[in-house]
């Protein structure tokens, strides 16, 4: 209990002492910006929905048509993001690893789904995959219907999600050390073993990020889907469309409830993916 007790570090610090200034202004700006762009609109949404009370929310959220739409939205989005992770990885691989004519052209084409108005994409896809379209016509004799079924939604969501996986995996793949693969080969590993034991684990964090982005985009996608989905309630009706339908019926609270439920589910799923990603980064040595 000496009077001149050494100054102790406070038990909590908002910021670590650092020689590099700028923490406070940047944090302040980031918080303000996020509030204006994200938090306040979403808060208003949840506030509006809460006007119905918990019972009311529960009733809307569990009504059969809403549940079916949510299942379609999230189920198909997850499937599309999964497929994009695999084939986006392949595209990224081909674009970074090999030199071939028109490679840059192909590279630029990957971004098209970003730039194209989604309605245009939806109409084109519907035309191509319809039973009388170019691809749909080939599948129709086999009894496979794509356009105007959940499969059509899947096609549209794969289309809009592709660039996310390609663009997140590409730079990581380009930075990957060729010598690690050579080391693996010199230790006797087959090409397959090298890819699965050395290359893919290093890419996993990037693939997961791409998956999360593609998934997020797919859940919110509206324009391209409604043209190809057929929009049959209980079958190929997506949740965002149901929100629009509710709005057109002036059921604003119903619309905000569906929106809030979507928000909650999407947030939980993205949080989970981010946690897996953080774990894999640690696990795979990206310190």
């Amino acid at each position: 209990m000496s009077a001149a007790a050494p100054a102790r570090a406070p038990w909590f610090r908002l910021r670590q002492p650092s020689a590099l200034p700028g923490f406070c202004p940047t944090l302040g700006f980031a918080l303000l910006y996020l509030s204006l762009i994200v938090l306040i609109p979403l808060g208003a949404l949840v506030l509006r929905a809460s006007g119905l009370g918990l019972d009311g929310i529960w009733q809307v959220a569990t009504s059969p048509r809403v549940r079916a739409a949510l299942e379609v939205s999230f189920g198909v989005s997850l499937a599309a993001a999964a497929v994009n992770s695999v084939f986006g990885l392949l595209v990224a691989w081909v674009l970074t690893r090999y030199r071939f004519p028109a490679r840059r052209l192909l590279d630029a084409m990957v971004d098209l789904p970003f730039a194209l108005p989604t309605a245009v994409a939806g109409i084109s896809l519907a035309a191509i995959w319809a039973p009388n379209g170019w691809i749909g016509g080939l599948l129709a004799p086999l009894g496979i219907k794509v356009a105007f079924t959940p499969l059509g939604i899947f096609v549209a969501l794969v289309f809009v999600g592709l660039p996310f996986v390609v663009r997140t995996v590409q730079p990581v793949l380009a930075d990957l050390d060729r010598e690690t693969e050579e080391a693996s080969a010199s230790l006797g590993a087959t090409r397959r073993q090298t890819v699965f034991r050395v290359v893919l684990p290093s890419l996993l964090p990037a693939i997961l990020t791409g998956f999360a982005l593609a998934f997020g985009r797919a859940v919110g996608e509206y324009g391209s889907v409604i043209f190809i989905a057929g929009n049959l309630p209980f079958r190929s009706e997506i949740a965002p469309l149901l929100i629009v339908i509710k709005l057109e019926e002036f059921d604003y609270q119903g619309a905000t409830v569906i929106a809030s439920v979507m928000l909650a589910i999407a947030f939980l799923l993205l949080l989970t993916i981010n946690l897996i990603q953080a774990w894999s980064r640690r696990r795979f040595g990206h310190v």
Binding site: S186, G188, F284
Partner: peptide, 28 residues
């Protein structure tokens, strides 16, 4: 290279970053 049974040590070491030291050594 797989069949030559050479031990090659790279200038950058080319260790597998996502594996422990034990797994690196055991890899071959």
């Amino acid at each position: 290279v797989q069949a030559r049974r050479v031990g090659f040590v790279f200038q950058s070491y080319a260790l597998f970053r996502h594996m422990t030291v034990g797994d690196n050594v055991a890899y071959g």
